[in-house]
């Protein structure tokens, strides 16, 4: 599946969102990514969040706080984002395995400081937030209403190579 970065954002304003919340273990009996589609974020504990809501349905970017994707190693977590067209996750920090799984699948996990995430979340008051990603320029833009903010991020050469290759299998197969 071709990856598209950026787009309409949904804000999950909580730290330590774990992979059990992103995709509960009872759905790990599926053996295709597509079968996971309806179960995205089903067990997320977050006030006001509706896993079946329009906001999530329209989102292609998830923005969150610290330690996003902690817990289980299940790649079903990035996969359930992937099949729901969410190919970009922006957070203050990530759990190691989740972060690696995103890049291994050719998807983006961007870390931004708390202050930047605060600003992005505040932007919601202007309306729906649209995220733009400039991979080469290593910058994120967030637009809502008439307002636009820009933030810079760092992507390691290895992570960038995984994005360019389309994932770790492609990178490793060509090299090892």
């Amino acid at each position: 599946m071709e990856k598209k970065f950026g787009g309409s954002a949904i804000f999950l304003d909580r730290s330590d969102i774990n992979t059990d919340e992103i995709i509960p273990a009872k759905y790990l009996t599926e053996v295709t990514k597509e079968a996971l589609t309806p179960y995205i974020l089903e067990d997320l504990k977050l006030e006001g969040f509706d896993p079946k809501g329009e906001k999530l349905k329209n989102a292609t970017v998830v923005v969150s706080r610290e330690n996003f994707g902690c817990g289980s190693s299940r790649e079903h977590a990035p996969w359930v984002f992937e099949v729901n067209n969410v190919h970009t996750v922006i957070a203050e920090s990530f759990a190691r395995i989740f972060r690696q799984n995103m890049f291994n699948g050719g998807m983006l996990a961007i870390e931004l400081p708390k202050g930047d995430i605060d600003q992005m979340i505040a932007l919601q008051q202007q309306g729906d937030v649209e995220i733009g990603i400039d991979l080469d320029g290593q910058s994120v833009t967030a637009k809502a209403g008439g307002e636009k903010k820009q933030f810079s991020f760092e992507i390691s050469p290895f992570d960038r190579a995984l994005i360019d290759a389309g994932g770790w299998v492609e990178f490793a197969d060509a090299r090892y």
Binding site: Q100, A172, D173
Partner: peptide, 15 residues
């Protein structure tokens, strides 16, 4: 612990 893609490359390439 790793995800399925790391596991897949581990199975295939041993790295």
């Amino acid at each position: 612990g790793v995800g399925t893609t790391d596991l897949e490359v581990g199975i295939l390439k041993g790295v």
